[in-house]
Structure formats: C-alpha cells, structure tokens
Design a protein around this nucleic acid. Sequence first.
DNA 1: GTGAAAGCGCTAACAA
DNA 2: TTGTTAGCGCTTTCAC
Lengths: 333, 333
Amino acid sequence: MKQYSTLKKLSEKLGLSVSTVSRALKDHPDISPATKKRVKELAELMEYEPNNDAIRLRTNKSKLLGVIVPHIQNLFYEHFLASLEEEASKMGYSVLILQSGEKNVEKESKNLDIMKRNRVDGLFVSVTEQTEDIKPFLKLTEMGIPLIFFDRVPPAETFNKICFADNNAATIAATQLIKHKKKHVLGLFWGSPKLSITQKRFTSFEEAFKNNSPETILDIHFHMDVNEAENITRKAIESNNPPDAIFCTGDSTMISAIRAIQKKGLKIPGDIGVIAISNGFIPELYTPSISYVETSGHKLAKLAYTRLMEIFDGKTFTRELSVDAVFVEGGSL
Amino acid sequence: MKQYSTLKKLSEKLGLSVSTVSRALKDHPDISPATKKRVKELAELMEYEPNNDAIRLRTNKSKLLGVIVPHIQNLFYEHFLASLEEEASKMGYSVLILQSGEKNVEKESKNLDIMKRNRVDGLFVSVTEQTEDIKPFLKLTEMGIPLIFFDRVPPAETFNKICFADNNAATIAATQLIKHKKKHVLGLFWGSPKLSITQKRFTSFEEAFKNNSPETILDIHFHMDVNEAENITRKAIESNNPPDAIFCTGDSTMISAIRAIQKKGLKIPGDIGVIAISNGFIPELYTPSISYVETSGHKLAKLAYTRLMEIFDGKTFTRELSVDAVFVEGGSL
DNA sequence: GTGAAAGCGCTAACAA
DNA sequence: TTGTTAGCGCTTTCAC
C-alpha cells in the first residue's frame, strides 16, 4: 500500500530542504525558476497532495465552511446546499454538512461541537423547530466564528440572518387571494408558531386581510406533521362551510392539501383555489400548475455566502438581510 | 476574541502535564479518578473542544467520509446523502460532499484531489456522464483508500460497486408493460448510452420484450437533456403511429414526458400508459399516481455504508452489490 | 499514576 | 536563493 508523499520525502529525493520545496510548490518569488521546475516535476511524479490537516493546524485556517440544517432531504435545503457548495468551491472552500433532525436540540448542539472541533471558518445554521436556547450560538460568535442563520432563524437580534422577506411572501399570497375575491381561506402554516418565520408569515397574512378584505373568513392552522395537513384539509372541505381557497406555506403541506382535494374529487381551481410558498419545482408538476410565491434556495445561498465573505473582509457588524419573494402565476386560483 | 482551549492551557491551569490531561479526558485506566474529575471539570468550564486537525494529523485517521456526486440537487442523491450522513454520524464520521456537475470530468478529478488532501478515510463516488478514464480512481485504491462507486458506476470490474439491480428494474417495467398488453412503447432512457447503468437497463428492457412480446414495437431514445424528453414525447404522440405507453428511466424524464402528454390533452392511463423508474416521491404527486419501479436512495446509502465498514474491518476484496427494485402499482398503465 | 519527549506534515521568521 | 528552526495541538512510547 503506497503512502502519501510528503514535503520531507520530496526534499530528500531532491537534496533540498523542506522549506525550499514548500516554497517552490507555491511559487514563492525567492525560489529560482530552475528549482521550481525540478520540485514541481517530482511532486507531479510522486503524486504529492498537501496534507490539509497539517496546513490547517499550522495556519489556523480550515478553508471549511459548516452548514447545519434540520434535513438535507428537503427541496429547499437541497437547493441551498447545492448553490452554497458551488459558490464555496470556487474560492477553495469545502462545505461540511450536518443534519439535526426536526425535534432534536441535542443533536443540533452536538453538531455545533463537531463544527468547532473541525474549526470551521464560518457557519450557516437553519435551526430546529425546538431550538430556543441561543447561548450555544452566542458562544460561537464570542469566539469570533462568523455565524449566519438562514431561513429558520431565532428571534434574537444579535445575529446575522438571511431570510426571505416573509411578511412580503405572505402578503403577496394574501393580495392574490383577495384579488381573486376569496371569501373563506384555509391557511395551512407549516412549523411551530414559535419560529420567527412562522410568526411573521402569520401576522402579515392576517394583516393584509384585515386591511383589504376584512369580510374574508380566515381559518388558520399550524401543524408540524404532514398527515395533519391532509386531515385538516379533508375536514375543511367536507364541512358545511368549506373554504374557497387554501394557502400553504410549504411544498409538503401543499402536496398533502392537494391530495385531500383530489381524493374528494374536487377540481382546482374550479371548486377550490390553491396558492403556496415554494421554490416552484413541485407546483409546476401539477396541471394546471399551482400559483406560488417563489422562495429560492439558490438566491438565499448566494446572499448568505456573500455576507460571509463580507464578514471575512472585516464587516463584522450583524445584519439581517432578506430576499424578496416573487409571485409566479399558475392556474390554481 | 476568545481563543480555543488547548490541552496545554488546561495542563498549565491544573499543574499537570499535557499527557495526563489528554489521558484523563479519554478515561485512560492509568489515571486516578480524582484527577479525571478535576480535569474534566476544568475542560467543561473552559469549553475545551479537541482540535480535529491535530488529532487527524497525529493519528492518521480523519473520521471523514467523502462523497462525490454529479449534483446534490437531485432527489435520488438527496436521499442518498441524507441517509449516509445519518448513518455515518452515528459512528462519529462526518461526510464531505462535493459535486462535479454532469459534464465536468475536470471538476471530478479536482474533487478527487480535494478528497485526498483531506485524507478521507473512505470515498463514495457516483460518476459523471463523461467519466471514462478510471486511472485517477485506481490510484486511490492503490493507496488503500476504500472507494465505493454507487448508482452510476464505471464498467471496470476492479471496483466496489453498489447499484440497483438495473436489469431487474428495467425487466420489471417491461413485464408490467407486457402484462398490460402494450404494443408500442416509447422508451426514454436518461443518460449517455456509455454509462453501464444505461446499457444494462436498455439491454434487459429489450430482452424482456424479445422473449415475451416480440410483436411490441420499441421506440428507444437516449437523451441527456430534459427538454429533449419533452420534444421526443411530443413528436411521438403527434405522429401517425403514436405509442400506447411510455417508459422513463428517471424523474425528470417522466416529468417532461407527462408535461408533453398533458399539453396535448391526452389522459393517463386512458390514452397512454406511463411507467417510470423512481424513488416514488414525484410519481405519487400525480393523480392517478404513476406506476413506478422503486429505486431508493436510502437503501443504497445503507448498503454502501455497510460495505465501507466491512472494508474497514478488513474485508477488502472488491464486490459488486445490488439492491433489488420493487414495483409499486399506481394507476397509470 | 504521572511526566518527558518525539513526531505527525506543514509554514514562516530568521539566518546564512 | 536556500537552509535552520520552532511550533501549531495532539497522541503515545518510554521512563520514573
């Protein structure tokens, strides 16, 4: 079994010192072209690959970015991760991804430790539904590890946050529902009402109706289980006073709601309207495609990455940034 | 800005040697209970987190597993990655994920270098469509780095591979099509015919018809672009001699084909049948849901991980394992 | 039961 | 232009 080449092995073969070899390999101006050539040729031949662990230990820069998400297996995070990895790799960063699960604060805090052990240069976190204690996160920032929350962020104001302009997204949805003269809307809000994202969405959704269509009946439900959404929808459409539209804050909720609608044999939009918050992939699978307010994981990732680079450049004040949502007309209202 | 604690700092505060502290922290039997207690308490207080870089450098074990995929943003890989990370984390492994893109052999080989630099303990790879040169991969195994190809694997026999029993999957699909007496099947094969997975699927699909329904007309297309699938389908269903069923080897192909069908106003299964190879998420969104041959990223990940652990335990011979596909009846045939 | 010392592979200040 | 040296944080052998 062949071993990894090291600077020492190269230097012995070449009759040079380790430091000369090291410098030659990184084109240090002090080294003569001839030496550089010799060194690089042998390095190629011996398939030298620098040992990142040693470099990190020595330089105290890991070139590692961490991401902690509830689940990888989620279209939104998938897009976020794909874009983030793509951006990061351009600058020589690698991305360490850890998932915490939805109701697992303990795992989240273990993941935080793993990130510390790996001495990540920066960290992106989307919190669990149960996350309340922000002290562990504060410790990170105290240690000067840049931390950026995205999408699901804690309410505290002392952090960098990148979110969708959620009031915006929910307001847009409400505006569309009002425009289509919906008078009885079932609102399915995915996630715990504790999360700031859920709160904001709810408040601005309600607000929009209060101001522009106070006569509309709002039937709001918070749920944290996909099956619940299907049940709630089923009960609503089977009741004496069924809704004429449904608003869903996420893909899985929408899928469940539509399943209930289709099982009942109702037509969209003829019998009932549907609008969702989504990145658009799932809504466009339906015919007619579901109208949605777009929230793109790609955009969020780009913004989050850019913000991190700013922090690396010394702009360390905390900021809360948001990406505007856009309405995409389908045929479901 | 607070610094990370180190063994040295702890040892100084405690008036002990670094080695004693190190041993106390890992419950070495030589150390007295009293000392252990003192050490652990201070470590807690000072928020000591071991430096993984130093440990790796010293022990030559990275506790890092690498995965190289064409894209993260793909339901199949997403499921694979989610399961793999979940399994790996149980045993203290972290997972480094890199994406190569579809037509980017260069990026793939760069990713391979990054994995080497990070001295990953083991590596999972699903290759690019363009990957032909297997030398870079051979080098890894020569160095004793366990390498397991999954899903998209190169034809060479000298590797560990974990695949779906693809002949199986395609055969199952063919059997169902024959059972439903389809006489003119449009076969949409995603991916280059160069890939062993595509080859196998095609061969066994054709074979099944040859043996059991030779009169069925097969109209087979290989494509590497989603829009192509929609175009091919459109042309086929608008022709004088339209197919009575479509077989798709993947989700995106299926989505495109169905889009063409729906735009034309045809009904599934009334006017045309559809069957696909998929993990089931997308097929079940349709009404009626699309019949599919299930290929689960979860199962594959579990098997791949188990195989890697076997290799770590010394069972280093190369093996080709496969997961059986299962038919899931929808209402689309 | 504890300590001293070497060394993993690399970088960088200083010397020559 | 190149070499010497120290040290990043940790584990581990050997000594006491």
